[in-house]
Design a protein around this nucleic acid. Structure first.
Length: 685
DNA sequence: ACGGATTAAACC
DNA sequence: TGGTTTAAT
């Protein structure tokens, strides 16, 4: 019995799809009269015409480049059309581009595993689709090959002939083709179709690379732009890399690439071949060394991860030079703007994708004018994320103050204006999908608890948050709705009149809220009630409040049943019952329970997220443990405190434990791992 | 101290 | 783990 050759069985078909000057295309779709004209997208038009962040290909011909100023662009290309990025919260607002990006993702994810790599790029694993196509209708039998597929570039075969297309067709359809080449051909046909779908459905063009791994696909997608695709057959990899400047390689555009050039005299990827793996390891560490050795041979085992949504959200702004923020008041103002945007975005994420963010992080850059050693960096700070824009603001300000104290080194004069903030950002990370659909745990909380009446809940919610700031006037329509939701979600606060978050508070908040968030968001998707907007109207099964002067009402509002629920949460969670003084009381006093909104209200405009969520349910029942482990990052065991689970009824325990994966975190880093899956285009002995 | 605003991931 | 650094777009 001959052992099957691994290359044949493990040859993957990977595509990288890259939108052409994406922001420009988005603006041109909005203003079709700009189509065909040299166009660029700028932000902050006030200073020197603003900074360019996207440039159309017409404008590039005139020498306009990214990172030029609007004024410079006008000089080299006088009739360039400059479009400003929308502004909201006093800063650039990229939401329209994000939305356009997700339109594209929803189309590109139709044919296989799809990984959103950035706002305008995806990787696709088309192996299965290509194999199916090959076995059902192999290229050589195809009568009418799509024009777009025939326009593919194939590295290594065409020689700039005018009759290129016939060469490509011959290459596609030749009978003696390598199996892997046939797979790539099928991949190219599929990608061509996807690109046409994207164009038809969104009016956007894109370019693509088709190869056996991500690295090569990414390389290829940039080789013929715009609106073209490039195939990298295994046989052409060696020549391709031999002359490829090292800095063109992803991950080598920065310091590592520079070090390779300067320290090893490596100028092309091919130059790397002469170094042994050990040599590279000793200079750059095992992982990086092995990784370098591999990429120089076109080997890259990175898999396409099925992920259509971003892993974090951030909102930030720079305050260059004279604009640096020098008072707490001004920092507070901008923090509020940034937090407002962030809050809206995680709220939208929760509503549309049923995802919950767990960590709030503040980043800043700062200088000290008087201090001699001003080289110190402003430290990042993070804490558990509490939903609701005013909570976020409050926490972000505390994080900032804490960071500023560290930055200034325990000296007191914080309004000394001896410091300045040159950039500020807040971000939300550790975003977990919540289990969608009906499950016993959700049924348990809904049917088992009579105190869960939504009308009562709304009232409760409104009364609980009298301190919310007035809606800003420019919020209308949908924003209004969002704001309401914001106010009513997770109003947990560590009752902090203290000047900073202590470690204890942080830890406590983290543990005690995670379970609540879990149930809250899961619950909200599981009822079958018909409501116009279940999310805004009844979304508060469990809430904690810090509003001291409403304590009486809150206690009155919660029934007996809810207090028993409360007890087992608290007893199950050590950090809840431990040495908390005032915050402990707040916590105890304000938990209540409610029913949820409707189960199946997913907006139909969000096909991609639906697909992602559905895949969770499907895999739960049909996949093996191992397969689950790979996909089940969605379930995030961190959402559930193990101690709490013990207190739950047995059938609920079973269900929850089914979601939990064993603590993973193997020490295999991306680099140097999963050698078995490496595609090896270069024959060895 | 203008290449801005975001994202991701390795590393320690 | 949180926080820092690197890198890409």
């Amino acid at each position: 019995m001959p052992i099957p050759r691994p290359e044949l069985h493990e040859a993957r078909v990977i595509a990288h799809v890259d939108m052409d000057c994406f922001y420009v295309q988005v603006e041109q779709r909005k203003q079709p009269e700009l189509r065909g004209l040299p166009t660029a997208v700028v932000q902050y038009n006030s200073w020197k015409g603003g900074g360019l962040i996207a440039v159309s290909y017409e404008a590039r011909k005139h020498g306009v480049k990214r990172s030029m100023r609007g004024d410079e662009a006008k000089e080299v290309c006088p009739n360039i059309q400059l479009v400003q990025v929308p502004v909201a919260h006093g800063k650039a607002d990229l939401n329209s581009y994000r939305h356009a990006g997700s339109e594209v993702v929803s189309i590109l994810s139709r044919k296989g595993k799809c990984e959103r790599a950035s706002i305008d790029e995806v990787y696709l694993d088309l192996t299965d689709a290509a194999e199916s196509l090959l076995s059902e209708t192999p290229p050589e039998t195809l009568e009418d090959m799509h024009e777009e597929a025939l326009k593919s570039h194939v590295l290594g075969i065409n020689l700039e002939a005018s009759s290129k297309e016939s060469f490509v067709k011959d290459w596609f359809c030749r009978n003696d083709a390598d199996h892997r080449d046939k797979l790539l051909t099928c991949g190219a046909i599929i990608v061509a179709q996807l690109r046409m779908d994207v164009l038809r459905e969104t009016q956007f063009t894109c370019s693509a690379g088709i190869a056996h791994n991500k690295m090569l696909a990414k390389l290829a997608s940039g080789m013929h732009k715009p609106a073209q695709q490039t195939i990298v057959p295994a046989s052409s990899v060696k020549d391709l890399l031999a002359s490829l400047p090292i800095k063109k390689m992803k991950q080598l555009g920065g310091k590592l690439g520079t070090s390779l050039q300067r320290d090893l005299g490596v100028n092309t990827v091919g130059d790397l071949l002469q170094f042994s793996e050990e040599k590279l390891q000793e200079r750059y560490g095992v992982n990086t060394g092995t990784w370098l050795w591999n990429i120089s041979r076109g080997i890259s085992g990175d898999e396409v991860v099925d992920r259509l949504l971003p892993k974090s959200h951030g909102s930030g702004k720079t305050f260059p030079g004279p604009q640096a923020l020098k008072t707490i008041a001004s920092v507070n103002h901008w923090l509020n703007e940034l937090c407002e945007e962030l809050s809206e975005r995680i709220q939208t994420d929760l509503k549309e994708n049923k995802r919950v963010a767990h960590t709030l992080t503040l980043h800043a850059r700062a200088f000290k004018s008087n201090d001699s050693e001003s080289a110190k960096k402003f430290p990042s700070k993070s804490c558990p994320l509490r939903y609701g824009s005013e909570k976020i603001r409050e926490d972000a300000l505390k994080l900032f103050e804490s960071g500023l104290r560290d930055f200034l080194g325990s000296r007191v004069e914080t309004q000394d204006s001896s410091w300045g903030i040159t950039s500020l950002s807040v971000s939300a990370s550790r975003i977990n999908a919540t289990p969608a659909g009906t499950s016993s745990i959700l049924r348990f909380f809904q049917s088992g608890n009579p105190s869960s009446s939504s009308s009562k809940l709304d009232q409760f919610t409104e009364e609980t948050l009298p301190l919310s700031p007035p809606c800003s006037d420019n919020h209308l329509g949908q924003d209004q709705e969002l704001h309401q939701f914001t106010k009513s979600t997770f109003p947990l606060s560590p009752s902090s009149s203290k000047s900073h978050l202590s470690q204890d508070q942080v830890a406590q908040t983290s543990q005690s809220t995670s379970i609540l968030r879990f149930f809250q968001s899961g619950n909200s998707s599981s009822s079958s009630k018909q409501q116009s907007d279940p999310f805004t109207e009844a979304t508060l099964p469990l809430s904690l409040s810090d509003s001291g002067n409403h304590l009486g009402q809150i206690q009155a509002a919660q029934g007996k049943q809810s207090s028993s629920i409360l007890r087992f949460f608290q007893s199950g969670n050590p950090s809840c019952s431990s040495s908390k003084q005032e915050s402990d009381q707040d916590t105890e006093a304000s938990v209540s329970l409610s029913t949820s909104g409707s189960a199946s209200h997913l907006g139909q405009d969000k096909v991609e997220q639906t697909k992602q969520l559905n895949s969770i349910e499907n895999t739960r029942d049909s996949l093996s443990q191992d397969e689950r482990r790979n996909q089940e990052w969605e379930y995030k065991p961190e959402d559930i405190d193990p101690n709490v689970i013990d207190e739950l009824p047995p059938e609920i325990q079973r269900e929850i434990r089914g979601w939990l994966r064993p603590t993973k975190r193997t020490n295999t880093s991306k680099r140097g791992s999963s050698i078995a899956h490496y595609f090896s285009p270069i024959k060895k002995g």
